[in-house]
Design a binder for these strands. Structure first.
Length: 696
DNA sequence: ACGGCTATAACC
DNA sequence: TGGTTATAG
């Protein structure tokens, strides 16, 4: 839900940069013969030619649109080249596009605060850069304005055909211009330069909007595509919004926009002006109401967040209609595939950005056979994220069983013989969130990872820049017998998932053959939470429904979450036999520092005199001003170490004793100032939030 | 019961 | 905190 934020009185310079049909450009760079030809990116070519997810501009001329099927696109545009999205583990793998997006971000973040808004969009706050530039070089003194900047579209500037360029040049150079216009002109110069750098270094074109806030910048970036930029002077805002269809506004493309139309008869942003703020608040709550009143006037105080990295990672797949999963073993198989992808992305994030994710979530959707109305969403379930592929997979399966039992408990569905007779699973996804940066002081932990021979397999598969040599080794290890991969019979499950309040069920065995730091890594997450928290944890896993075939087993042992605990020798053997040290090995497998595309790319950047994206990310996002924790800015969390401090309370002190002495010292130092949890949350401090009562 | 997959934010 | 819902590309 949109939230109103005050807009500071000082004018800002905000740019929104949007890559042009990004996936298509990525494919065209990979395969340059496609350049200039009508091209679209398609996924799942099997059914009616697959679904288009990106369409190049040459193809758009023929009327090819997203959400056509591949076959239909061929009909309207017989010459179209349909490129398939890469597939890994039986599902679409977007890593190439994500990585290409990172390339762009690493360039765009060179000037000003940078927020990665999506895989192919970025916001920049250029206010400071522009002020500096204007101080040194007032535009009216500029002899030349770059070609690219001259090509800018300036809203509200009346152009007389052939003299358009002169008009724009004059607009840039006017010495009597409104101060705000000078700011935007400066911003446009910088953005034009950045866009050229992006083109030079990545071969990608993009479009941009330059305005005084995010909303207007976003609006403008889409107005002249591809490869152009649009400026929104303050004086043009009123007219621009007046006739703009309400649904074109970000956040109003969905139900809220529909409600505005249906309930208030608002069709353009201008129509909103007639409503008092009280009326809008009455209809949509204080936050949304205020926000609506503001955007009608082109006011949007939303800050550009300094964030170059995603706040969560997810991997999911749908199984529509006849492809719905009917057996637990099918679910398990897919769950494991999804977990593998997630695991790889987590390891890459750890390696590249020194970040760990703390929450693991499973989403499943399903339908009840013979009952199309039985709604399809299972409740999602989360648990602390434990690093290590086997653990992630185990947790995913446990969460699935927990969710199934809950749901099944409600609906009294019999599930036996490995089949949900009445249910079919139509969607599965796993995600990792709650990501925090490991403080710089503990980075030496990372060197333990470097000592292992690893590779980042999915990226190796999907990214041609990658070093292929390191990939094979680990993937063979990965695929070796996993005790969990076999179909679950009821007995097997009963055994594996036995409620293990005794040490018997402990899955977090200490494994002596493995560098002890691994145990630390395994326990870094909320795995090792304080005892009193187990109550709720346990509760969230426990099954309170009536008897059924699955009901006999709570899915997760209490001891699992203790991180360390008492283990019998028998237990250790059982663990080593069943899991081998697969979870540990797998943890190490799949992350070769040399094989990351970031690093591969890094070389080219360094050759061209630029710094690596990795470094940029570190510098811009987490300026580590010293070894002490108090100065550690947690990057995506502008509130410094608040969130961090709060969460590190959860680390099990007993884990510390098992670490190498120097690491212990580091971690203790890191933990020291964390005692006081600051619970003030972002966003709640400025405005008082109401619960919104709305009819939509 | 075919628009798939991914991501963010707000709210309870 | 966990889980839901809305939104967007």
């Amino acid at each position: 839900m949109p939230v109103a934020r005050p807009e500071s009185s000082d004018s800002r310079v905000i740019a929104h940069i949007d890559m042009d049909c990004f996936y298509v450009q990525v494919e065209q760079r990979k395969q340059p013969t496609l350049r200039g030809h009508p091209t679209a990116v398609v996924q799942y070519n099997s059914w009616k030619g697959g679904a288009l997810i990106a369409v190049g501009y040459e193809a758009r001329k023929y009327g090819v649109k997203r959400s056509l099927r591949g076959d239909e696109a061929k009909k309207v545009c017989p010459d179209i080249h349909l490129v398939q999205v890469p597939v890994a583990r039986g599902k679409a793998d977007l890593s190439v596009y994500r990585n290409a997006g990172s390339e762009v971000v690493s360039i765009l973040s060179r000037k000003g605060r940078c927020e990665r808004a999506s895989i192919d969009e970025v916001y920049l706050d250029l206010t400071e850069a522009v002020k500096t530039m204007l101080a040194e070089n007032p535009p009216e003194r500029l002899e030349t304005i770059s070609e690219e900047a001259i090509k800018s579209h300036v809203l509200g500037l009346h152009l007389d055909g052939a003299k358009a360029r002169d008009c724009v040049r004059e607009w840039f150079l006017r010495s009597d211009a409104d101060h705000r216009d000078k700011l935007l002109a400066g911003g446009a110069l910088i953005v034009a330069e950045l866009r050229l750098q992006v083109l030079r270094e990545t071969e990608f074109t993009c479009s941009a909007g330059i305005a005084h806030n995010k909303m207007l910048a976003k609006l403008a970036s889409g107005m002249n595509k591809p490869a152009q930029q649009t400026i929104v002077p303050y004086s043009s805002v009123k007219k621009l919004l007046e006739s703009l269809p309400i649904k074109k506004m970000k956040q109003l493309g969905g139900k809220l926009g529909t409600s505005l139309q249906a309930d208030l008869g608002v069709n353009t942003v201008g129509d909103l002006l007639q409503f008092s703020v009280e009326k809008l608040q009455e209809c949509y709550g204080i936050n949304t109401g205020t926000w609506l009143w503001n955007i009608a006037r082109g006011i949007c105080g939303e800050e550009v967040q300094s964030r170059l990295l995603p706040k969560s990672h997810g991997s999911g797949k749908t199984f529509p209609g006849p492809r719905a999963l009917k057996t637990v073993s099918a679910v398990q198989k897919w769950l494991y595939e999804l977990c593998e992808e997630l695991n790889e992305r987590l390891l890459c994030d750890l390696e590249q950005n020194k970040r760990i994710a703390r929450t693991f979530t499973l989403h499943a959707s399903a339908y009840k056979v013979n009952d199309s109305e039985s709604l399809k969403k299972f409740p999602s379930k989360s648990c602390p994220l434990r690093y290590g592929i086997a653990k992630i997979q185990e947790d995913a399966l446990n969460l699935f069983h927990a969710v199934l039992r809950e749901y099944v408990g409600i609906y009294h569905v019999r599930t036996k013989e490995n089949k949900h007779h009445e249910w079919a699973i139509t969607g599965l996804s796993v995600s990792a969130s709650n990501i925090v940066v490991i403080p710089s002081g503990t980075h030496s932990i990372m060197k333990y990872f470097h000592n292992q021979n690893q590779s980042c397999t999915s990226i190796n598969k999907s990214n041609d820049i990658c070093n292929q040599d390191t990939a094979s080794l680990s993937s063979s290890g990965l695929l070796l017998a996993d005790p969990q991969i076999e179909t679950y019979g009821d007995e097997a499950r009963a055994k594996d998932d036995m409620p293990s309040l005794s040490p018997d069920g402990d899955g977090t065995e200490v494994c002596k053959d493995v560098p002890v730091v691994m145990q630390f890594a395994d326990n870094l997450g909320p795995t090792s939470i304080e005892t009193e928290q187990h109550g709720s944890m346990e509760e969230s896993f426990s099954y309170s429904g009536s008897e059924n075939d699955l009901g006999s087993k709570p899915t997760q042992s209490k001891m699992d979450f203790l991180g360390t605990g008492l283990k019998s020798e028998k237990q250790k053997r059982k663990f080593e036999k069943e899991k081998g040290n697969t979870s540990i090995l797998r943890f190490f497998h799949g992350c070769d520092p040399c094989s990351f595309p970031e690093n591969a790319r890094l070389k080219t950047f360094e050759e061209s005199g630029a710094s690596s994206s990795g470094k940029l990310i570190q510098e811009n996002q987490q300026p580590m001003t010293g070894p002490t924790l108090s100065t550690c800015n947690m990057g995506q969390d502008d509130f410094r170490s608040d969130a961090w401090r709060y969460k590190t309370d959860e680390i099990d002190p007993t884990v510390l004793n098992e670490l190498p002495p120097e690491i212990q010292a580091e971690v203790r130092a890191w933990l020291q100032p964390q005692k006081r949890a600051n619970t003030v949350k972002r966003g709640s401090s400025i405005f008082h939030y109401f619960s919104r009562t709305t009819d939509s």
